[in-house]
Design a protein around this nucleic acid. Sequence first.
DNA 1: CTCAGTGTTCAGTG
DNA 2: TCACTGAACACTGA
Length: 278
Amino acid sequence: MPELPEAEFGRKLAERTLGGRSIVRVRCARDTIVFDGVSPTRVQRALQGRVVLAVHRWGKYLWFQLDQRPWPLFHFGMTGSFRVPHQAVLELASSPRRPSGEWPPRFTKIHLVVDGGGELVMTNARRLGRIRLRDDPRNDPPVGRLGFDPLLAMPKSREFAELFGKRRGNVKAVLLDQRFAAGVGNWIADEVLFQAGIDPRRTAESLGENEVRRLRAKLGHVIRAAVRVDANKARFPASWLFHHRWGKQSTARTSNGERIEHITVAGRTTAWVPTRQL
DNA sequence: CTCAGTGTTCAGTG
DNA sequence: TCACTGAACACTGA
């Protein structure tokens, strides 16, 4: 699930559920991988009794601003999400399948209950997600090493071109590099390049001024559009590559009938349209 | 049964 | 320092 729009949806969900509340109960799974550099017990102690003042996001990372440090820092990996007890509308947006009746859900790593009865869990089936504690999540690593957040702090055109100009390697690798733009993942990178009409294998230095401007504009556009619909894929515009990219094989076509090809770029499966991306 | 996958990090190489 | 590759992590679903 998790690229910037999914993380932003999780942020809103957490803030709506926990904001201004004090945490009255914490249950942590015994998981020594997802809890990274800190025991589940220590996380439990750090959160128990604290007030959640706000929930913040940078790129794909989320953290709680509490009335006392350290603060918890979350990353969803490839399969994680924040969930709250059955709320049909929200479930639709966060999980494509499984109406799921069980609570807490399977693969729950942390389960929070706040005063007033609100509840939130983080699930993580594949265990590539992480829960950490940080004194200053925004500035400590790993968040401190991230580049700009395209939703919160998109650089002006000129600065964007400057940052981009320092990069080597192919343009898709640059988009995926979290030290450049925080929050871009595989499908967003492909979608942006598709809409900008740029071949993902092109080197960064081969792009002209107009292409760099287009790249910036589409990056902002794709992310804002996905955030606007709470990362609900069914509501992404019909023209997006996203809906067709998994057609796999030679049958995959865009809404205009153009052939979609699958290749490996920057070590990731890449869907692109050779007739449109030059 | 096998393999790829909406991610990150690290080791090794050039 | 930078960039690239491959592997590791863990598990599900095609």
